[in-house]
């Protein structure tokens, strides 16, 4: 009960910081907008498969940028303060929750921008929206934990890409494969299985972060 309170307090703190400073949200938003605009200038309105691939690649880079600073912004003194008032599990859970929310918003916004600028090849838009949210959350969970690891080493952003990209490839491949359904009216075999696998992986990432974060936390 108590830890729920702490998690919600930490979550609220992140949210309030975000609303007051409005730096990272608009920063990432501008990043999304300018990347997609550059893509639009470079590619125009590409074919379905290219559209799909580009969308997920953009999601990947947006996620790295949105999540990377979640541990960077906490200075050493602040971390010590959190250490004294909250457990590591509450701390990582609040971060996971906040980043999932941030990435959810970013995924939907970038999907909207994508359809406006790069054309709309989607036949089943609703399914794709669902997938984009699921994918965004999956990416954010993995990268939140990796940001926690990378924050402990120097060269944050570069290291995060090195650590994260190989790990995320299987999930990204799955997402691209599943999202194929949104482009055609043919139903793919083994779809439910793949969705369940994705959800299972997400669940595993949460469990692993909760188990492993306490070791990263103490210095």
């Amino acid at each position: 009960m108590n830890s729920l309170k702490i998690i919600s307090a930490l979550f609220k703190k992140d949210l309030l910081l975000e609303i007051r400073q409005q730096y990272s949200f608009y920063g990432v938003l501008l990043y999304v907008a300018s990347t997609i605009f550059v893509l639009f200038l470079a590619m125009g309105q590409p074919e379905d498969a290219v559209w799909n691939g580009l969308f997920w690649m953009i999601q990947l880079f947006v996620c790295v940028n949105a999540v990377a600073k979640s541990f960077l912004q906490e200075s050493k003194g602040k971390m010590l303060y959190f250490y004294s008032i909250a457990g590591p599990r509450d701390f990582i859970l609040s971060k996971l929750l906040f980043n999932a929310l941030l990435m959810l918003v970013m995924s939907l916004l970038s999907l909207a921008l994508f359809t406006i600028l790069m054309g709309n090849p989607l036949r089943n838009p609703l399914q794709f929206v669902g997938l984009a949210t699921l994918g965004g959350i999956s990416l954010s969970l993995v990268f939140t934990f990796l940001a926690a690891i990378a924050a402990k080493a120097q060269q944050q952003a570069a290291l995060m890409a090195i650590l994260g990209f190989p790990i995320i490839i299987p999930q990204l491949l799955l997402l691209m494969k599943i999202s194929g359904i949104a482009f055609s009216s043919v139903i793919q075999a083994g779809l439910l299985q793949m969705c369940l696998l994705l959800v299972g992986l997400d669940f595993m990432v949460i469990v692993l972060s909760v188990i492993l974060f306490p070791f990263l936390w103490k210095d």
């Binding site: 934990f145 690891i149 650590l163 790990i167 299987p170 692993l208 492993l212 990263l216």
Partner: peptide, 11 residues
């Protein structure tokens, strides 16, 4: 060690 466990569990 933390990354090793995490990566292996994902891989």
């Amino acid at each position: 060690a933390v990354y090793n466990i995490f990566a292996c569990a994902m891989l």
